[in-house]
Design a protein around this nucleic acid. Structure first.
Lengths: 108, 108
DNA sequence: ATTTAAAATTGTGATATTGCAATATCACGT
DNA sequence: ACGTGATATTGCAATATCACAATTTTAAAT
């Protein structure tokens, strides 16, 4: 088939999976790291640093944007991306909660 | 293409992506939660609880096993899965490190 | 208005993933 | 040995993902 039966899972399970799915590609991990290291970063810079084609980077950026992890600032012809730290924090908490709850369940 | 250019990323980026990729499906999140809730759980129970076909659950279990998150105990004809808490802890730390480092980089 | 540069979108081919039916395997009980 | 129940494997169809060339869109600069 190829599609996911999301409806048979609860909201939190889909949420955790949604976040981790986006993180589940090294290019997106790298993009997030580069943007946070440089504070601001445009698409072209990422293309040069990472070594994937511009449309590919653009696509990955779009997926990271979908879960709200990026902010954008237009400066001339350049579009600078930065990390939405509030959202990153939420994401971290959601994922960490999954780990913690799982570990607690195991132990008791 | 459809394949990932892993060689252009560093070890840690691939590691983080590897872990999160496995977590990036609600069925696998659900399976991990069920096993940890019940301490021990066999395939059939998961099939009944989750509502996916036996081969599908078996496949998802195999992917979770690949990153070492599961222990197995044979009891008669049953194969009971439990969480490898040490590995889960490592996984949690790797993923959390990514979040923390990203946030620290942003802030400074 | 025209050129230029940056980034998104579109289209496409290759590969991966999801899900399941059918089958195979494995271990126990008879 | 044979049947039974549990799980893994195989094969397949549908869909999704990854990567990129070509194109379009956007906005500044000339």
């Amino acid at each position: 088939m190829g599609f996911t039966k999301k409806h048979i899972f609860n909201e939190n399970q889909n949420l955790v999976a949604n976040y981790t799915k986006v993180l589940g590609h090294p290019a997106r991990i790298s993009i997030i790291q580069q943007i946070s290291d440089k504070k601001y970063c445009n698409c072209n810079e990422l293309v040069k640093i990472i070594g994937l084609a511009q449309p590919t980077i653009s696509q990955h950026l779009a997926e990271i944007r979908k879960i709200g992890l990026l902010k954008q600032t237009v400066k001339g012809k350049n579009l600078f991306y930065s990390i939405n730290t509030e959202k990153l924090n939420i994401c971290r908490r959601v994922v960490n909660d999954f780990f913690v709850k799982t570990q607690v369940s195991c132990g008791k």
